[in-house]
Nucleic acid binder design. Sequence first.
DNA 1: AAATATGTCTACAATGTCTGTAGAGTTTTG
DNA 2: CAAAACTCTACAGACATTGTAGACATATTT
Lengths: 153, 153
Amino acid sequence: MISRKTKYALQALGCLAEGAAGEPMLIADLAERERIPRKYLEAILVALRKGGVLTSRAGRGGGYQLAAPPAEITLARVITILDGDLAPLPCLAGDAPARCDECGDLDTCGTRLVMAEVMRTLNATLEGLTLADIVARSREARERRRGTPDFSI
Amino acid sequence: MISRKTKYALQALGCLAEGAAGEPMLIADLAERERIPRKYLEAILVALRKGGVLTSRAGRGGGYQLAAPPAEITLARVITILDGDLAPLPCLAGDAPARCDECGDLDTCGTRLVMAEVMRTLNATLEGLTLADIVARSREARERRRGTPDFSI
DNA sequence: AAATATGTCTACAATGTCTGTAGAGTTTTG
DNA sequence: CAAAACTCTACAGACATTGTAGACATATTT
């Protein structure tokens, strides 16, 4: 359901979402703060950039930034970029379902019909959650623990 | 999200749920009807038996039967038996979440909190669907296609 | 222009999981 | 006993995941 790679990605993206919007962050800093192998994170960030979720700048003073506000980057998008289609079976593919070898009839296969229902629900859930939620949940949890909910500016 | 193994299992279980309740079905018949490699299906059925979803009888006249009515066997149960916990990351395990190596603090990790939400939704969906739904969806689809919805007994 | 800081790309390797196969063994019925 | 059926252990190939290495390209600062 969630790979280590995706978790790394969400952690790094959460980190970027928490930071100030204007300043790029370095791969090395993200890797250290979130305890992610540097070169592995590198590959993840490149994929996210190609997926349009991040922008980067090389050279001194460069680094990575979110390509959009945290509230506009959904979990569905991040997961799809990194792990591909949620459904590893051809007959459940979101866009163009194709017959699996063992599927008798695509339209009347009960297993397929029921699992398609599950996939739709899951997708709706993932479309409804964003990086902003990750930041919010984390902050709520920290405040709750200290017993000092902070409603001030 | 769904492995080939789980799909095979659901197909075979759907087949058993459709058939008459009293008569056991043979591995070989299930394998042929659903186009599943015989020996692989064998391993799947053994796991389901150990998981309490099936009963079997060896010897002539033997075979496999559901251990409960189709409406009482949830997708959640089948998937858990075959693929283990839905969450492959320690920090998201349903019963006893443990810290992953890269998790800083289990209670305030935003990624974990949000993904836990997703897992709960997914689990609720899978708990709400049963073998009876697989049979029902398949029958509805067949009836719809022939243009002869059948509301009679 | 040179030096340095930074991201980019390709290739590879270790490990693990998934899918599938083989064959000997055990239980039950007739 | 003999045949029909499930049971168990072991293995193997393909594939995905995770992680590493190092050469390269780009941008900034001086």
